[in-house]
Design a protein around this nucleic acid. Structure first.
Lengths: 113, 113
DNA sequence: CAATAATACATCATAATTCTATGTATTGCA
DNA sequence: TGCAATACATAGAATTATGATGTATTATTG
């Protein structure tokens, strides 16, 4: 698990990309999926995810569909048109940022290299 | 320039690595150096840097040396022993994080790939 | 030579985001 | 039967970078 601050800024891009790749997902599923695909290194807390999903919905990026599974409600999220437009810019920014981190934290140039 | 939240968590690692590579630097120099080496993509604000340098100093990672240049004071920072020990873990965490971003935001696996 | 930009430091209130703690309830398993 | 996992939710706390503002010196340029 990374220091909490490093994760700031990547939660919404993660949500957008996952929904873009999977069509629809529910909250708990997102948490488990990110945990698995990051080899346990990115552990999104439910206290972080649910408010973020609510905010994205309120802002018009996501829409919801409630499904009853037994006696339990499962709330699926999917991208709206606005949400689909937001995927590429969000993902690209993270990818660029990741490349910049590579530059900044790679080995320093020495007189001999 | 990236969305502000993405930069959270990387300021202290940047400072530690720069001082490790350069021996000593002053605040304004750090801002300019990061701007140049990130091709203008990471613009550390003085309102962010100076408080961070003060905090790292207070916590025992850095020590200072005031140098007069003309009539102007320049405050150099260098790593203490404790600071040197903190470099590798901080840098490694960012590098690992960067690798995880690569995994999470790479192209999704499809049935054909 | 006067105005402007750059150098160089500093602080504080604000904003943004995630986490911890807490709560409710159902379902599966040992 | 009790515990873990599933599945949702919220509110206050914590962390960190930024914007705004301030002071002062030095270099540049019209």
């Amino acid at each position: 698990m990374y220091s909490r601050e490093l994760l700031k800024g990547i939660l919404k891009p993660i949500i957008l990309k996952l929904l873009n790749d999977h069509g629809k997902m529910y909250g708990y599923e997102i948490v488990q999926h990110v945990k698995a695909s990051s080899q346990g290194k990115v552990l999104i807390k439910e206290g972080s995810l649910y408010p973020s999903l609510h905010a994205l919905t309120k802002e018009g990026y996501l829409e919801t569909e409630a499904v009853m599974v037994g006696n339990r409600t499962r709330k699926y999220y999917r991208l709206t048109g606005k949400g689909k437009e937001a995927v590429a810019p969000a993902v690209n920014e993270v990818i660029e940022f990741q490349a910049t981190l590579s530059t900044l934290f790679g080995k320093p140039k020495t007189a001999l290299s």
